[in-house]
Every structure is written in structure tokens, then in C-alpha cells.
């Protein structure tokens, strides 16, 4: 276990990284972020973590004919000064296999979710952008994912898409982003839609921030918007399950 800034909540917290089969499991003790990254093979990871490369192991993540590179730092050695035995963290559940995904889709309300065309994603953490993109594609929720690194880039990309008659099927927004946060980006997006006489694209806020009464009011005002709290899910399967469920309601609401 080593201490790093969590890509979800941004806090400097212990990030637990364990290897389970072909999955690298990453969990944050602060917000509960749990992610599973499928590796090409467990042997490959061991080969890459050589003594010549003590601080950094490069893991090739292969999914659906795409190769994603994720830089993974090796865990720090245990501190010899800490004499008290540490409570072992509960092992995170493995990421869903394809068969589980089908069961997950059937189990969620509203039945199977149809595959969307394009999803536009605004998330300032490169790591989470990659994971969310991977989740949407691997669960066949979207055929294409357009990444935006912040709210400003998103407003530009969304406006450009509407002007070209290429409206995405769904927008996924992080709430906390530098420059233009998710809430303001969503209002700007709705304003652009109004100005261009377009329908309201469903919005899914995906954030570690609590959805309080004020934010619920904002969701209502924006219309066709839902919220997923990253930190409620302890592992990738639960998170994936809730995303599928919320997407079903969102896409069905159009």
C-alpha cells in the first residue's frame, strides 16, 4: 500500500493496489473509489516489475482491440517503525467478466440498456477518463467516447458537435473541474442547446462530491440529468452496476 493522491476525491490517502488474477484492483480508503483494470496477463505484470525498473512498472491494458497504457507505481516498502499490526483491508471484488455484465444488465431496472452511439466525457483526471471510457466501451454502453480534459474543452467540443449536427447521446460530467466546473459546464451546455434550438442531451454527473439538496435542485433545473457518486461503490462491479442502472433511466427519459 502506498500513499498517493486519489484520482477520484483528490485527497492524499492510502491507495491500495492488489493483483487478483488478470485484474489490478485499486481502492481509495477515503472515498471508497474502487476500480479494476484488466491486464494482458498477470505474468506480464511480474515480468515488467523488474529490479531494473524498481519505481515504475508499465502495465499494458488490453481490451476490445484497444491498448491503453496505465502507469502504475510499485507499492512502497512497509515502514519498519510501525510495530502495531495493521488490519488487513478487505479484498476488493474482481472486475466483472463479460457474462456478469449481461446478468448485471438484466438485473437493473428497465431491462437491457441499448447501446448508445457517442458519449461525451468531461473529467480532469486522466486516469478516471481512461477508466470511465474503458467501462463504457467494454460494457458496450457506447460505441464512441469523446474525451474532454476540463469543462471549457467540453463546452467547445459540445458546441462544435451541435453545430455539425452530431449531438452525443449522453454527456458524463465530473463536478469538480478546474476553470469551469461540471455544474457551470452543464448550464453552459443547456444554454447552447437553447440557442441552437436543440433537444436536451441527458447528463450524468459522475463525482465524489455529495449530492445535497442544493445539487438536487440543480439537477431538476437542468432537466434530464442524473448523478452518480463515485465513492458509494467499493468495487468496480458495484460501480458498473449503478452506471448501467442510471444510464437505463437516463436514456429512457429522452
Amino acid at each position: 500500500m502506498d500513499t498517493k493522491y486519489c484520482p477520484s476525491c483528490g485527497q492524499e490517502v492510502p491507495l491500495e493496489r492488489t493483483l487478483q488474477g488478470n485484474y489490478l484492483m485499486i481502492a481509495c480508503r477515503n472515498c471508497g473509489l474502487g476500480l479494476g483494470v484488466k491486464l494482458a496477463s498477470a505474468d506480464e505484470l511480474r515480468k515488467l516489475s523488474t529490479p531494473e525498473q524498481p519505481s515504475l512498472a508499465r502495465v499494458e491494458v488490453v481490451k476490445r482491440q484497444r491498448t491503453i497504457s496505465a502507469a502504475v507505481e510499485k507499492p512502497a516498502p512497509p515502514d519498519p517503525r510501525s510495530a502495531a499490526p495493521r488490519e488487513a483491508p478487505p479484498p476488493p471484488a474482481p472486475a466483472p467478466a463479460p457474462a456478469d455484465i449481461e446478468a448485471m444488465k438484466r438485473a437493473t431496472e428497465g431491462g437491457p440498456v441499448r447501446q448508445m452511439g457517442q458519449v461525451m466525457l468531461a473529467e480532469d483526471s486522466q486516469f478516471l477518463r481512461q477508466i470511465t471510457r474503458d467501462l463504457l466501451l467494454s460494457q458496450q454502453l457506447a460505441r464512441e467516447v469523446v474525451d474532454c480534459e476540463d469543462g471549457v474543452a467540453f463546452v467547445e467540443a459540445y458546441t462544435r458537435a451541435l453545430a455539425a449536427g452530431d449531438r452525443p447521446d449522453l454527456v458524463v460530467l465530473d463536478v469538480r473541474m478546474p476553470g469551469l466546473d461540471g455544474q457551470q459546464a452543464a448550464f453552459a451546455m443547456r444554454a447552447v442547446e437553447t440557442a441552437m434550438g436543440q433537444k436536451r442531451t441527458p447528463i450524468l454527473f459522475f463525482s465524489a462530491v455529495l449530492c445535497d439538496e442544493k445539487f438536487k435542485g440543480i439537477l431538476q433545473e437542468l432537466g434530464n440529468a442524473r448523478y452518480i457518486r463515485k465513492s458509494e461503490d467499493g468495487d468496480a462491479q458495484q460501480l458498473g452496476n449503478r452506471i448501467v442502472s442510471v444510464l437505463g433511466r437516463l436514456v429512457g427519459a429522452r
Binding site: 471549457v152 463546452v155 467547445e156 458546441t159 469551469l180 466546473d181 453552459a188
Partner: peptide
């Protein structure tokens, strides 16, 4: 936020 959005829309 308005100013940043304006610049984004101009670029689009």
C-alpha cells in the same frame, strides 16, 4: 465561467 464559456463557443 461565462467568460470561459464565451471563449470556448468562439473557438467552436
Amino acid at each position: 465561467g461565462c467568460a470561459r464559456s464565451i471563449r470556448a463557443i468562439e473557438r467552436a
